[in-house]
Design a protein around this nucleic acid. Structure first.
Length: 346
DNA sequence: TATTCAACAAGCGCGCTCGC
DNA sequence: GCGAGCGCGCTTGTTGAATA
């Protein structure tokens, strides 16, 4: 093993060019020793502050030879702001296309500020959600974008009071005063039903998660019921649609209240040969929509826009905005693609 | 003398060790 | 068991040397 004197620090640090043999990652101290400059010079070069060109080249060469990677955790330890340049995104399922698009929107805003995003799934479990939140805060994320599962988030009050950014997405906060971005789920569902009614349908089935499965589900069901006002009966299905379609009182139209449910409804209609017979409007757009025939009419909220807006609210707090909690409502848009415009077959 | 720039040293939060 | 002290890796305000 080669070793040489540090040449800079009075503590007599020795550097080992072949760090693989020391079994630890190279630090700034190692870079400084190899380049023959002080630690602060390395810090300035690494952080892009103006340092003499020759010294910069020496430092950059040492960085390259040692394979040095900047330790942001150590940096945030000392940095006066105490910020880690990371934010956490938590939703029920990061595999959900909605969450993926939401993440992308938030990431775009974060990237402009050199902030890294971490994402995690709560699996719809409030206890696990809390565990993830605690873990992310323990890792000193600067803020959280939370698509909440749990009902009580009062345990975050102290974190918010001490500067941690927190934005609720798609569900307004009940037990904590914080910013939120929500979709007008109720209005979107009303719009879907109104669209189907305008095309002559009266027997319209709602297919979706149960009202106990969150704010969005409950709001969409409520919007459906409001939209159905004046008609004889609501047809609400939480599960398999097939038995209903096979019965005598089959609906002439279906409103599916969530993207994964929409996919299931499409499969069922296709299997029964009803995909061009029963009208269908879905809530939440789905991937591969262009490759699907017939194309499904959608009430789409722009998940990327939600992510972007939520991130902007979060960063405005981190930048010092100290006003009252804000609520931004995004109205979904109905996109006609064909299935929602089918007329009822008499 | 004024300006530039690198070195020094303090200190951040946390975990660990050591001595009482 | 408890508190003091230290080390980790880094940033940043201050200091002082070199140069114009």
């Amino acid at each position: 093993m080669r070793a040489c004197d540090s040449g800079s620090s009075r503590s007599g640090t020795r550097y080992f060019p072949d760090n693989e043999m020391t079994g630890r990652r190279p630090t700034m101290k190692d870079v400084a020793a190899m380049a023959g400059v002080s630690l602060s010079t390395v810090s300035r070069v690494v952080n892009g502050q103006g340092v003499d060109a020759d010294l910069t080249a020496k430092v950059q060469r040492a960085v390259e030879l040692l394979g040095y990677r900047h330790n942001h955790a150590a940096g945030s330890l000392r940095r006066s702001s105490g910020l880690s340049s990371t934010i956490g995104l938590i939703g029920e399922d990061i595999g959900d296309p909605f969450f993926a698009a939401f993440h992308r929107g938030a990431e775009q805003v974060a990237r402009e500020r050199s902030v890294v995003t971490f994402a995690a799934s709560s699996d719809g479990n409030p206890e696990y959600e809390r565990e993830i939140i605690e873990t992310m805060l323990g890792r000193r994320v600067d803020g959280l974008l939370l698509i909440p599962t749990g009902k009580d988030h009062s345990y975050l009050r102290r974190d918010v009071a001490t500067g941690t950014g927190l934005v609720f997405v798609n569900r307004p906060p009940k037990t904590i005063d914080t910013d939120c971005v929500i979709t007008d789920h109720r209005g979107g569902a009303r719009q879907a039903v109104a669209h189907l009614r305008a095309h002559g349908h009266e027997r319209i089935a709602f297919v979706g998660p149960g009202p106990d499965e969150g704010f969005a589900a409950a709001e969409r069901l409520a919007g459906y019921r409001e939209g159905m006002d004046g008609l004889e009966e609501d047809i609400v299905v939480h599960g398999d649609l097939e038995p209903l379609l096979a019965g005598d009182e089959a609906p002439t139209a279906v409103f599916s209240a969530q993207n994964l449910v929409t996919v299931e409804v499409m499969r069922t209609l296709f299997r029964l040969g009803l995909d061009r017979v029963v009208a269908h409007v879905g809530f939440d757009d789905i991937p591969l929509r262009g490759a699907i025939a017939p194309p499904v009419t959608m009430v789409a909220h722009d998940a990327a826009d939600l992510g972007q807006t939520a991130a902007e609210l979060l960063f405005s707090r981190l930048d010092g905005f100290n006003g009252r909690a804000r609520e931004v409502v995004r109205r979904p848009v109905l996109i006609e693609r064909g299935t929602g415009e089918l007329q009822p077959v008499s």
